[in-house]
Nucleic acid binder design. Structure first.
Lengths: 100, 100
DNA sequence: GCATTATCTTTCCATCATGGAAAGTACTTT
DNA sequence: AAAGTACTTTCCATGATGGAAAGATAATGC
């Protein structure tokens, strides 16, 4: 019933949730969606990559460098586990973390 | 879409979840259920009391002092908000993990 | 009466996490 | 050459966390 600390930190939870909702997301999109600084996103993305949860892809749009993030299979699975564990912790109260 | 940091800390989330499932819970029960030390529970309970989320009741069982915790109305409401916010963050992923 | 137990609370400490600013990297545009 | 784009890394200050140890208070055991 452990809450994976890599995912639980609020900023990373939000990053992972954004990525879980899409196949891939741009650096700037994630940063602006969450309203965080470049450095914070860069550091959390690296932490998630180190954990094996996020893939960081670098490429170009025209001549400008761009970075995209996506969840790895391991990341998706860890996120699903995380949500399940949250549910276990919270559910005795009768509340749910799930939509609907 | 803020996750109340008083509740989000894993240990306090578990404490609050336990309390949300009951009217009142004993110090020893909560400590043993979560597997934490006396000092940690004592400190987190104080923090939750300071936030207005938990009521700490002291009394006796026979001649031995005992402490009980319960959520205040404010605490229940903050917890419900917390879970709602969690839902908002997580739900775009479309996870279909079922409660229970 | 004094030591021990019970039930917490508070202090101490060492560690880790977090975020933003600033500086750095690499390349491009003007 | 200077400035801009798109990050990454370093620096730093702040705060959170947990357990052990020491306290506080009262009740039993011997």
């Amino acid at each position: 019933m452990e809450l994976d600390p890599v995912i639980h930190a609020p900023t990373r939870l939000q990053i992972v949730s954004v990525l879980a909702a899409a196949e891939e997301a741009e650096f700037g999109f994630v940063r602006d969606t969450l309203g965080i600084s470049d450095s914070v996103l860069s550091k959390h993305a690296s932490a998630l990559e180190t954990a094996g949860y996020v893939r960081i892809r670098k490429g170009y749009v025209g001549k400008r460098p761009k970075t995209w993030f996506s969840l790895t299979e391991q990341g998706r699975s860890a996120f699903a586990d995380y949500v399940r564990n949250l549910q276990k912790i919270v559910s005795p109260s009768g509340l749910t973390v799930l939509p609907g």
